[in-house]
Computed example of a mutant assay.
Amino acid sequence: MEIKVLGTGCAGCRALHETVKQAVAELGLDATVVKEEDIMKIMSYNVMQLPALVVDGQVAAKGRKLSPAEVKELLAK
């Protein structure tokens, strides 16, 4: 599983990245977590609201920080 946190480095983006890493560890998932800050790569996902969460190439959430429970729910799908 590949998980990307899209964001330009703002506090919300950094917080989501930490929340995702925590959720992956708690769920024991075999996943790679990447923080993508390159605006051109972010735009390739057609995301205009940050932070955004991409799971296996699909945008799962955008425009808001997620709680650990929300991240776990998205990753469990």
Results as ranks from 00 to 15, higher is better:
residue 11 A to S: 13
residue 42 I to A: 04
residue 19 T to K: 02
residue 25 A to F: 03
residue 19 T to Y: 04
residue 41 K to D: 09
residue 17 H to V: 08
residue 43 M to R: 15
residue 46 N to V: 11
residue 30 D to L: 05
residue 25 A to S: 13
residue 22 Q to S: 09
residue 14 R to P: 02
residue 19 T to C: 04
residue 15 A to I: 03
residue 20 V to N: 06
residue 26 E to A: 10
residue 35 K to Q: 09
residue 67 S to E: 13
residue 1 M to S: 10
residue 61 A to E: 08
residue 49 Q to H: 12
residue 63 G to T: 09
residue 63 G to W: 09
residue 19 T to I: 14
residue 77 K to Q: 15
residue 8 T to D: 05
residue 58 Q to M: 12
residue 19 T to Q: 02
residue 72 K to V: 10
residue 18 E to D: 14
residue 61 A to M: 10
residue 63 G to N: 08
residue 37 E to D: 13
residue 76 A to V: 05
residue 40 M to N: 12
residue 33 V to H: 02
residue 35 K to V: 08
residue 39 I to F: 08
residue 21 K to N: 07
residue 59 V to I: 12
residue 70 E to V: 04
residue 74 L to K: 10
residue 16 L to F: 05
residue 11 A to M: 09
residue 44 S to T: 11
residue 47 V to H: 03
residue 23 A to Y: 00
residue 73 E to G: 05
residue 21 K to Y: 03
residue 50 L to W: 02
residue 37 E to A: 12
residue 73 E to R: 15
residue 37 E to M: 14
residue 23 A to G: 02
residue 53 L to D: 03
residue 52 A to G: 15
residue 41 K to R: 15
residue 6 L to I: 05
residue 9 G to F: 08
residue 36 E to G: 05
residue 76 A to L: 14
residue 71 V to W: 12
residue 77 K to I: 06
residue 39 I to N: 01
residue 1 M to N: 08
residue 9 G to N: 11
residue 6 L to P: 05
residue 16 L to P: 01
residue 54 V to A: 11
residue 1 M to D: 09
residue 72 K to A: 07
residue 18 E to Y: 00
residue 2 E to H: 14
residue 30 D to V: 02
residue 15 A to Y: 03
residue 23 A to M: 01
residue 34 V to A: 12
residue 66 L to P: 02
residue 40 M to Q: 13
residue 46 N to R: 14
residue 53 L to M: 10
residue 22 Q to R: 15
residue 24 V to Y: 03
residue 55 V to S: 05
residue 76 A to W: 01
residue 16 L to Y: 04
residue 4 K to H: 05
residue 4 K to C: 01
residue 14 R to C: 00
residue 55 V to T: 07
residue 33 V to G: 02
residue 74 L to P: 00
residue 14 R to N: 10
residue 50 L to M: 13
residue 25 A to E: 15
residue 26 E to P: 00
residue 76 A to C: 03
residue 15 A to R: 14
residue 72 K to I: 10
residue 65 K to Y: 04
residue 75 L to F: 09
residue 34 V to E: 15
residue 45 Y to R: 05
residue 30 D to T: 05
residue 17 H to W: 06
residue 42 I to M: 06
residue 39 I to E: 10
residue 56 D to L: 04
residue 39 I to K: 09
residue 28 G to R: 07
residue 10 C to S: 13
residue 37 E to T: 15
residue 57 G to E: 09
residue 48 M to G: 00
residue 60 A to L: 11
residue 48 M to Q: 07
residue 33 V to F: 01
residue 51 P to E: 08
residue 62 K to I: 01
residue 77 K to W: 02
residue 35 K to Y: 12
residue 39 I to T: 11
residue 8 T to V: 15
residue 37 E to Y: 01
residue 42 I to C: 02
residue 73 E to N: 11
